[in-house]
């Protein structure tokens, strides 16, 4: 029993240490930046994303990201996509993923998190919450009138 707790604790540490890398930018077109810790970083293909990153695309921009649970997120021009929260246990597929589309267009293919639990992955818009249950879908948040 004691040994199991130690193992669980070690796994927890491993998850935290590895938590910084939650996905990778696979596709970049035009002007794309990530806001991270108060800084705006130009995005290049191959860059790793982290929890709390806010991805912004310009008028000519689009971006495609693959998360470590194999889910795919891609945003069109003039979009603001926040990766609010991401926890993923690669062994059990348990965890949680919250992303927010504040503006623009987003295409989603869900991955292992949503497959494992219907409550694990949520995409937020300014007015709604989308509960993802093994799904491909698109979301648009238009300019306010």
């Amino acid at each position: 029993m004691h040994r199991m707790i130690v193992v669980a604790w070690l796994l927890g540490i491993a998850t935290l240490a590895h938590g910084a890398d939650i996905g990778q930018v696979k596709v970049v077109k035009g002007h794309v930046t990530i806001e991270r810790a108060g800084r705006s970083i130009p995005v290049t293909a191959g860059m790793r994303v982290e929890a709390s990153d806010v991805v912004k695309t310009g008028a000519d921009g689009s971006v495609g990201i693959t998360m470590t649970d194999n889910s795919l997120l891609s945003a069109g021009p003039d979009s603001v996509l926040a990766l609010d929260r991401y926890e993923f246990d690669d062994v059990t597929s348990a965890g949680r993923f919250d992303a927010s589309l504040r503006q623009g267009t987003l295409a989603v293919v869900s991955g292992r998190l949503a497959k494992q639990s219907g409550d694990a992955m949520k995409v937020h818009t300014p007015s709604a919450i989308l509960g993802v249950r093994g799904t491909e879908f698109v979301v648009r948040v238009g300019d306010a009138h």
Partner: peptide
């Protein structure tokens, strides 16, 4: 007020698609 829309797409893997939109 029509600023947001959500469209479910056909599944490449043949799974049963489902999306719960809560507002």
């Amino acid at each position: 007020a029509t600023q947001e829309r959500v469209i479910l797409l056909p599944e490449a893997g043949g799974r049963t698609p489902s999306l719960a939109v809560s507002q």
